[in-house]
Design a protein around this nucleic acid. Structure first.
Length: 427
RNA sequence: GGAGAGAUGGCUGAGCGGUUGAAAGCACCGGUCUUGAAAACCGGCAAAGGGGCAACUCUUUCCUGGGUUCGAAUCCCAGUCUCUCCGCCA
C-alpha cells in the first residue's frame, strides 16, 4: 500500500520554536541554509491555510443546511478554495524542498570542525605486529595468489569491481558468516535477508534522497512511475522496515542484522583508492540496525559500536575508534563513531565500520512511531552501523596476516568456517 | 500473459450519497474488584495540520490522482498495490 505523506526532515515547528539553535548548529555542518526564507515561507503557508479553512467552514455549513438558495454561493466558494489550495500547496512544496535538504543536528558532544581533521580518536586497541619484511598491499598479495582478479572484472564489468576467487572467496564468505553468527548468537540481533532494491520513497526515508541521488544506482525496472534503486547499504532497507508504522512499545528495541551486497557510484572520488578493493562499486557489508525508544539512542550507539569492535577483537585486528566531527558526519547522523582498522601496507588506519545514531531524524522522514507509556505517539530512534564491512575485513586480514612467502594465516575464529584450514598459500 | 476479487483507524472488520471520523471485536491506557496477578465489570483510545497561554476549537484524511454533486468512504474515470484461478518459467 502506497501512501503519499507530507515529508520533511525537521519539523517546521521545532525550527520556528528554536531558530537560533538551528542556525548555530547547522552552521557546523558545512551547509548553507536560508533560514529567513524558511520562516517567510512558513508564515505565508500558514496564512493561506487559515484563509482556506475559513472558506471550507463556510462551504461545509451550507451543504449541511441543505438550503438550496445558498447552493450557488457554495459553488463560488469552491472555486476560491481551489485557487487558494494551489497557491498554498506551492508554498508548502517550496518549504518542504528546503527542509528535506537540511542535515540532522549533531549532538552536543560531537567535535565541531569542518572536515575529517577535526575527528577525535576515542580508543586504540590491538597490537600492531612488527613484520620482518616489507608488508605487501592486499592487491599484491591477492593477485599473486591468483585469487583477486581486477583485470577480469574490468573486462566483464568495468572499473571498481573485482573477482574474488577460490580460497579468498571462501574466506570472504567465512567472514560474513562469522559476523552474522556473532551478532545473532551473542548480541541479540535478528537476521534478515532483505531485497537489494528500494523505492525512491524508501531512499528518502533514510536520507539518501533527494540530496544524494548522484551516488545511487537507479534500476530501469519498467516504464511505470515508480523508481527503484540498488541499495547503497542494508541500512536503507532494514531501517525502512518500520516506515509508516506505529509500533507497540513491547516490540522495541528491534535489532536487525543483514549481510548484503552494497552498490555505490562513488561519484566524486575519482583518483581516490583506485587500486585494490578498498573502494568498489559493489561490496559486501554486514549491517546492524536498531530501532529504539528515542531516549535510548545514545546508550544503543555505545552498545552497537562495541558489537562491531568485538568482531575486530575476535579477529585480532588492530583498530582505533574515532568520533566524527560535525563536518564529516553523514547527512542523517546526530553522532557517529568510525572504526578504523590497521593496514600495514598503507601504514595507517582505514575505515572499516561506521556506527551512527540518527535520533528521530529518519523516523520523521519515514513516519515511524511507537506508542509510549502515556499512549502517545512518538517517533522512534534509529541507529545503523557496519558490523563490519566484509570486503575491507578481507583486506585487513590479507595485510595483517600475511607472511613473507606470500601466504595468509587464517584467523582462528574463522577456521571453523573454512574446514579448519589454517593458511592460504599459492597452489 | 488470460480471468476474477479486493484496498476503511495500531490490528480484524461493518458501512455503499447527507451529524459516518466512521459500528463491532482485538490490542492499548485508566479505574473497580483481588494479598498480588488473571478473569469480570466501568471509562478512555485514529492521524496530520491550523488557531489559542490554556480549557478548547477549526480543517483535512476511509490506497493514490482526477471527475460528478450544494454535499462522496459511498457514484464515475485513470493509476498503484494485494489476493484467487489459469497459462508460462525458475
Amino acid at each position: 500500500m502506497k501512501r503519499k505523506l507530507k515529508r520533511e526532515m525537521h519539523s517546521i515547528k521545532d525550527i520556528r520554536k528554536d531558530i537560533d539553535n538551528f542556525k548555530n548548529t547547522i552552521k557546523n555542518r558545512n551547509v548553507d541554509v536560508d533560514f529567513d526564507q524558511i520562516l517567510n515561507l512558513d508564515e505565508e503557508n500558514r496564512k493561506l491555510i487559515q484563509e482556506k479553512e475559513k472558506l471550507e467552514m463556510e462551504k461545509k455549513s451550507i451543504s449541511k443546511s441543505k438550503d438550496e438558495t445558498l447552493f450557488e454561493k457554495s459553488k463560488e466558494i469552491s472555486k476560491k478554495i481551489d485557487d487558494l489550495s494551489k497557491n498554498q500547496k506551492n508554498v508548502k512544496d517550496q518549504l518542504d524542498q528546503i527542509l528535506s535538504n537540511i542535515p540532522n543536528l549533531p549532538l552536543n558532544d560531537v567535535p565541531i570542525g569542518k572536515d575529517e581533521n577535526s575527528n577525535k580518536e576515542v580508543v586504540k586497541s590491538g597490537e600492531i605486529k612488527e613484520l620482518s619484511f616489507k608488508p605487501k598491499s592486499h592487491y599484491e598479495i591477492g593477485e599473486k595468489l591468483n585469487m583477486l582478479d581486477f583485470d577480469l572484472a574490468t573486462k566483464t564489468t568495468g572499473s571498481r569491481f573485482v573477482f574474488v576467487k577460490d580460497k579468498l572467496a571462501s574466506l570472504e564468505r567465512a567472514i560474513s558468516n562469522f559476523m552474522i553468527d556473532t551478532h545473532v548468537n551473542n548480541n541479540g540481533y535478528t537476521e534478515i535477508s532483505p531485497p537489494l532494491m528500494a523505492t525512491d520513497n524508501t531512499m528518502f526515508g533514510t536520507g539518501q534522497l533527494p540530496k544524494f541521488e548522484n551516488d545511487q544506482f537507479e534500476i530501469k525496472f519498467d516504464d511505470k512511475n515508480d523508481r527503484k534503486f540498488l541499495i547503497p547499504t542494508a541500512e536503507v532497507i532494514l531501517t525502512n522496515m518500520v516506515k509508516n508504522q506505529i509500533l507497540n512499545l513491547k516490540s522495541l528495541p528491534m535489532r536487525l542484522v543483514a549481510s548484503t551486497p552494497c552498490f555505490r557510484k562513488e561519484a566524486g572520488s575519482y583518483g581516490k583508492d583506485t587500486k585494490g578493493m578498498i573502494r568498489q562499486h559493489q561490496f559486501y557489508k554486514v549491517e546492524l540496525v536498531s530501532i529504539v525508544e528515542n531516549n535510548k539512542c545514545i546508550e544503543e550507539l555505545e552498545r552497537m559500536t562495541s558489537c562491531a569492535t568485538k568482531i575486530l577483537d575476535d579477529l585480532k585486528l588492530p583498530y582505533r575508534k574515532i568520533i566524527l566531527s560535525t563536518g564529516d558526519m553523514g547527512f542523517s547522523a546526530e553522532k557517529t563513531y568510525d572504526i578504523e582498522v590497521w593496514l600495514p601496507s598503507e601504514n595507517k588506519y582505514r575505515e572499516i565500520s561506521s556506527c551512527s545514531s540518527c535520533g528521530t531524524f529518519q523516523a520523521k522522514r519515514m513516519k515511524a512511531r511507537y506508542k509510549n507509556n502515556n499512549n502517545e505517539n512518538e517517533f522512534v530512534g534509529t541507529l545503523n552501523g557496519s558490523g563490519l564491512a566484509v570486503g575491507r575485513t578481507l583486506i585487513a586480514i590479507l595485510e595483517n596476516y600475511q607472511t613473507e612467502d606470500g601466504s595468509i594465516t587464517i584467523p582462528e575464529k574463522l577456521r571453523p568456517y573454512m574446514n579448519n584450514m589454517e593458511k592460504i598459500g599459492i597452489n
